[in-house]
Amino acid sequence: MNWEQYIFEGKPFEGIYIFDVHGHVGAHKPFQLGGYDADSVAKTCRRMNVDGVVVSSLPALASDWKWGNEEVAASVDAYPGLIWGYASPNPFYEDCDITPYLDLPGFVGVKIHGDMQGSTPVNDPRYFPTYEVANERGLPVLFHAWLSAEVRAAADVARRYPNTKIILGHSGMTARDTALEVARTCDNIFIDTAISSTYDNAIEVLVDKVGADRVVYGSDICFFDCIHTMGKIALARISDTDKEKIFGLNARGLFSL
């Protein structure tokens, strides 16, 4: 596939399966997002020939867990087969049970952002009921993973709940090497590509260290845009096979689509 031609002609990729494992709906308090409702996310996905995106609600993570998960449910309802849902728990609420959301069609995993929730480590026992459900059902769990402590806490969860599929968001960001290290030691850890700004060759490093089978395309849409990450993968010096795995074939397996 002539990835370059597609990019420089401004033509979204065709003939490949693209599935974004790291998306959002909903506004975020500290800054403006250029379109954060389901319509906006769907419009971008359709324009870019993205076959599917799994979204969590930014308000579910940082504000009202119930309102936010309802937002995801509404988004999934509005765009079945295109927008899929992560349910997000809140550890402070004893009555917070996200199982009803996970029972809804279109909900395919769990998203947890402990940092937004009072800087709670993701291996805090208050999250364990959620992990038990995810483990039972073999669901993916996407973690925000920015710092070494966050990566290690996520790895702890991966080991405790070996039937879950843990996705380390943002490639571990500042703790990327730690993320790659834990991914090498734990079969159920995967790395996503959702970073706003990183250098060229960073994708190649991921593939080199953990193999393309363990890297999944994530964009962080609508927190920020998705198109630059698509270009980074497309123009990375890895094989077409690896690109297709990263863009969607791995996610298809992870999410049993």
Partner: peptide, 15 residues
């Protein structure tokens, strides 16, 4: 409304 502070200002005002 809390959502107006912590999440979506417009939606929170409507809530």
């Amino acid at each position: 409304h809390a959502i107006a502070k912590e999440g979506d200002v417009k939606a929170g005002n409507m809530e």
